[in-house]
Amino acid sequence: MSLEHVAVAAMNGLVVGASLALVAAGLALLFGVLGVLNFAQGDFYMLGAYIVWLALGHGQSFWTGVVAAVLAVGIVGGLALMTMLWPLRDRAHALVLLATLALSLIMEQLAANVFGGDAKPIAAPISARVPIGHTDYPVYDLIVVVAAVVILVGGFVFLKYLKYGIWLRAVAQNRRMASVLGVPVSRVYALAFVLSCGLAAVAGSLLAPLTQVYPTVGLDVNLSAFIVVIAGGLGNFRGAAVIALGLGVAESLGSLWIPGVAVQLMVFGLVIALLILRSQRQRVLVRL
């Protein structure tokens, strides 16, 4: 096994981890603020990818498609999701889980009916490659990693220093007290939905050239994102981002020596161990 193979595998892992980090950060945000575990998060990822495909089909540029995906899925999808879940906000968690699971199934079936079940290839907007040893590595993949890191660092700065970011954390930690300080709680909830869906969409649209687009493209990423969010501590934005990147790289590197299925099993084992360790935690908050 040459160093070059390891470097390429690590880069591939970073690309997977970056997209996972975006989806997982959105999941963590929504769970931290509202206690909503959104099973349809991967389907907003899928929608983002389809919007890029549609934009390209209508003669628009790839980047216009990405912006359209983020705006459409973030704002329209986020607010629609909020409208659906709002009546369930003080009800049992199981109801929210079932509602988002139902939404996920509906979205996948709708996508299959409207776009067909076949995988649609999308060309990367940048075809240049950089050499890593004897391997030419796609520049676009590196851009995906950089974009994800920039977005996640931006998210961290937003939560840490900006008014609405601080308000998001305040609402997550003590909703009643936040409203006493003048925080418009329902507006903050809406923001959490928009950001969460927007993060899924940006991941789906950026990864579309790497994964192709099909109705269940979000399923795998959704499962991994749940693992990441659980391992990072539900509601933990930074933990989700860091673990997603780590998981992506670990899976990719592990596959060099161990069969992929065994790597997956090990990851699940780790999550079960973490769940047992964390079972004593009582509060779930948006943490940094």
Partner: peptide
Amino acid sequence: PVHSRARRGLGFVPDAEAVFPEM
């Protein structure tokens, strides 16, 4: 609503669970 009362100049410090613990 509560937040608009706060914006009009009403403040309230409850006796318990008043801080944001993870800030």
